[in-house]
Write a protein that binds this DNA or RNA. Structure first.
Lengths: 262, 262
DNA sequence: ACGAAATTCTCACATAGTGAGAATTAGGTG
DNA sequence: CACCTAATTCTCACTATGTGAGAATTTCGT
């Protein structure tokens, strides 16, 4: 475990790194600003932009303005088409949703880079925002039913890494103060077939989540019901808990696979 | 116009090139197969895969199996969030759809790489496939209302390039046989505020499409209604034509922008 | 058509990407 | 649980190629 030689980022790393500068708040970048940010020359920055534009990952909007490009849209379609879990889950999610009377959303989520990402959302509230937790959106790992139910079943390696990197956050969410406490909390979570959490992510929302496992028993993600209105009666929660569980089982039954490292 | 020196693909080009190997039919690739395909050594191919996995663009599924990764999902969300046309169009599309009684889909499309790409689809047929023309899907440039209405308004440069690269296809779709004929056909298309085409893409479907222009008068894309059932009465088509036009205008009114080169 | 800013080009240099093969790791199997 | 094979990483020498500085050129708004 003695530090291996640190290898500098490769050229392609830096090119791909450009993409991660683009965010919802900052969707437009210029080669100049990027050059400064990445500590490369302006010429090099232009070279990066050109290869990214050539591949369609970026698109030139105007003179000095580049945005994320259409190749990404095309690629995401392929991701959807190739995702076996999504393919199996979607009809199950639709059916589950159709049984609900209250305004709600059904979420399919997965672990990604120490966070949880939404893969698919079905909602019965057409038009307006039920949950901003839509495909591609990330949520914290330690709050909300959707996340916690995944967290609880992550492999030990990953748990250790999470503790190493997010100790403060874990403690702040009442899963501390020590590593042993954290593990004990996860053990407790694992005992319950579903997790129910209220107002942990969005005020007033209640999440009811069940884990989805792959053929070899690893957590593949989670399926959850998000209720718009604050906690209904206990009986309703119980009914819905059984429903998500059943749906998760149904998805598992047709055994797909997907990955998830840290 | 004497050939400039051909510059070989840069390293990053080749790394990004790996992504384009992944398709719906062939969603899983190994470093080995990729190495042969790209004419690089196995070691280099592994290096490519590693940088792509590190960035999340690829994901290791199993031993020798890599698939497109979650970073793409995350990026597409940012693309959606940053797309001003989409943001404006979506509510308009929903409203338009709500007025239709017949099973239908509303499509928002754009030009991309000598093809037309779907940006968003709204449908009133929940569950089952109304149109496989969903976000990220590509369609031929010379068939279907959705495409033709964009084609008609592309800038001259692009038209020339299309003729150069797809003469055969253009002629096969009855827009030939010469370049002058092609241009004449486009002129005719431009005269009509909407285009109506039946069974050109999918058997039995009818598309009614209107172009969307940006602030400086360039085609930004198209808005179209796709009817599931074969051609209704002329009166219905006329009513819908007026509706798409109105919707397209409405989108334009709140002036967004987007790009589109060849 | 003009002028300023954006973008590409040139070129010499050294970094860093490359291939061949050895070394190591990982996963399935008996 | 240890083996065996295939997958993956590592080493290293070499040279291709990515890089920065600045000049040349193009682009676009006015």
């Amino acid at each position: 475990m003695t530090e291996g030689q640190k290898r500098g980022p490769t050229s392609a790393d830096k090119v791909l790194g450009v993409l991660s500068l683009f965010t919802a708040e900052n969707p437009v970048w210029s080669p100049e600003r990027t050059a400064r940010r990445q500590r490369v020359s302006l010429a090099t920055s232009y070279r990066y932009f050109n290869t990214l534009v050539a591949s369609g990952m970026l698109e030139k909007l105007n003179r000095n303005q580049y945005v994320l490009g259409p190749a990404i849209v095309e690629l995401d379609r392929k991701v959807r088409a190739a995702d076996p879990v999504l393919k199996l889950a979607q009809p199950v999610m639709e059916r589950l949703l159709r049984r609900l009377r209250e305004p709600a959303a059904i979420l399919l989520c997965r672990y990604y880079r120490q966070k949880v990402m939404c893969i698919h959302q079905e909602t019965n509230r057409s038009g307006e925002p039920v949950s901003s937790y839509e495909r591609g959106a990330l949520r914290p790992m330690f709050r909300g039913a959707t996340s916690k139910v995944i967290l609880a079943h992550l492999p030990p390696r990953t748990i250790v890494n999470l503790w190493r990197d997010h100790r403060r956050d874990i403690v702040a969410n009442g899963m501390g103060p020590g590593f042993e406490d954290f593990k004990a909390n996860l053990r407790t979570l694992r005992r319950e077939p579903v997790n129910v959490s209220s107002s942990e992510v969005d005020e007033g929302r209640t999440g009811i989540a069940a884990p989805i496992f792959d053929a070899s028993g690893r957590v593949n993600g989670s399926l959850s019901i998000v209720l718009l209105s604050s906690p209904a009666s206990t009986r309703v929660v119980e009914r819905l808990s059984i429903a998500v569980q059943a749906a998760a089982r149904e998805i598992e039954r047709s055994r797909g696979n997907a990955a998830g490292q840290d």
